[in-house]
Computed example of a mutant assay.
Amino acid sequence: MSTHAKAVTIHPYFQIHAGKIEDFVANMTDFTNQTATEEGCLYYNFTLNGDEAFCREAYTDGDAALAHLANVDAQIKRALELSTMTRLEIHGPAEELEKMRGPLAGLNPAWFVYQTGLTK
């Protein structure tokens, strides 16, 4: 079985407020530096499309994803001062997503349950 069989990905999209791109980019660096301390992070990076930001992130399982969110709480709060989260998707196996549903209910994410595919 792949070591990524329980992997969870988080897909937040941010619309950066006018005049705040430089501040948001600085906060992206803070996010990345804070996340570098996490053992359960598989990958973590940001992409920009003009004034829209996307965080591309994956964790070994639901517990690691929740630990990440607790670890970057200050950076999340800062991001939400500088932008509006326009969409939040959580992808992964049903049993891992179930761990996250309660803690993330207030964010109203779209839940994508793994069905089939290839994990190497």
Rank of each mutant, 00 (worst) to 15 (best):
C41H: 09
K99A: 13
M85T: 03
G19L: 07
S83L: 05
L118W: 11
E57M: 03
D51E: 07
D51Y: 01
F24D: 00
A64D: 05
A110S: 08
F24G: 03
A70P: 03
A74S: 15
Y43P: 03
V113W: 02
M1V: 10
V72M: 03
P103Y: 01
E96M: 08
Y13L: 08
Y114G: 12
P93G: 11
E98H: 13
Q15G: 06
A79Y: 02
V25W: 01
A110I: 10
I16P: 09
T86M: 02
K20S: 11
G102E: 14
N108S: 15
D30G: 08
G62V: 10
N108W: 05
A36I: 00
T47M: 14
E39S: 15
E96K: 06
T35L: 07
C55A: 14
K120D: 14
K120I: 10
C41I: 12
H68P: 13
A26P: 04
H68Y: 05
A7L: 02
S2E: 06
Q75Y: 01
F112V: 11
T60A: 13
K20I: 01
T35E: 10
A18L: 11
H91A: 01
L66N: 09
A7R: 05
S2H: 05
T9W: 00
E22R: 04
Q75E: 12
Q34I: 03
F112G: 04
G106N: 10
H11R: 12
N49T: 13
